[in-house]
Design a protein around this nucleic acid. Sequence first.
DNA 1: TATAACGCTTACGTTAACGTCAAGTGGGGA
DNA 2: TCCCCACTTGACGTTAACGTAAGCGTTATA
Lengths: 151, 151
Amino acid sequence: MPQSASSTWTISELAEEFSVTARALRFYEDKGLLTPTRHGQARVFSATDRARLRLILRGKRVGFSLEEIREMLDLESITSGSPQHLGVWLTRFRARIEVLKQQRRDIDGAIEELETGCAWMEARQADLEPSAELKSRARAFEALARARLEH
Amino acid sequence: MPQSASSTWTISELAEEFSVTARALRFYEDKGLLTPTRHGQARVFSATDRARLRLILRGKRVGFSLEEIREMLDLESITSGSPQHLGVWLTRFRARIEVLKQQRRDIDGAIEELETGCAWMEARQADLEPSAELKSRARAFEALARARLEH
DNA sequence: TATAACGCTTACGTTAACGTCAAGTGGGGA
DNA sequence: TCCCCACTTGACGTTAACGTAAGCGTTATA
C-alpha cells in the first residue's frame, strides 16, 4: 500500500483517479505535457503533475488539442517572451475566447433541444397506448422539429 | 450563374456559405447525414438539406460525432420506435445533457482563465520597459498561476 | 521460491474526419 | 467545334490520440 497521503502518486493511482489509462499518461509525458520524476524506472507523480493533469483533461473537454494545451501550460514561454511575442499570444487567447463563447451558445441550444426531446418522449411514455391522440401529438412534434429544420 | 434565389444550392455554394469544403459535404452524404437530390450527376441541395447542414455543424461544434449526429437527425427512428426503444433514447439524451452541462462549466472556467491571462498581458504591454516593478508583477502572476495549479 | 501484480519500452494498429490526387463527364460561351 | 469550368467517382494519404501486444525487469505476497 503506497503512502498516498504523502502527495506522490504512481501511474495507476493517477490513472484510476481521473479515469484515464496509464497509456494516456505516458503519452502525455511523451508529448511534454507531464514531466513526472523517476524512482528508478518508475514514474513518480507530484501534486503539481496531478494539478497539470486536471488542467489537461479540462482543456480536452473544451476542445483544445494536446499541442495547444502544452503551449498554454508552458507559462515560461509566455512570461519570458518579448512584447511582440506577447501580442501573438494575446491574439490567440482572444480568438480562443470567441470560439469558446460560440461553443457556449451552441451548447445552450443543444441542451434546449435535447430537453425538448426528453419532454416529448416522457409525455409519449406516459400514455402507454398508441392512441389517435398520441399520433397527432407525434405529428405535432415532427412538425415542430421540421419547423426548426426549416428555420 | 445559378438561380440562388430559388431555394436550391450547388455543392460549392453551400460549401462557401458554411465555410466547409465540397469534399466534406460529399462525405456527409456518404455517411447518411445529407441526402441531396440529383440533376443528372450533380447534387442539388434543398432548403431542408441546408438546414440539416446547419444542425450538423452545430452538433460538431459541441462535440457530437458524425455518427451521433446522424442518429439524432433521423427522427424517424425515434418517433416510430417502441416505448422500450424510446427509453434507450431518453437515457442517452439525459446522459448527453449532463455531459453538455459539464462542458459548459469547463468552458466558463476556461474563458475566465483566458481573460485573466489577457488582462495580465495587456497590463504588461502597457509598461513598455521591463522595470523591476513589472518583474515583481510577473512573479505575482506566476504565483497566481501556480496557486491555481496547486489547488 | 514461485507467481502474480505492477511497471517499463518499443512498435505496430485503429478510428474519425476529412485532404488530396487522378481520371472522367457534361454543359455553356467564344 | 473546342475548350474551360464545375462537378463527379474512386482510391489512397493524413493527423490526433491513444489502444494493444510483445517482451522484459522489479516488487509484494502466499
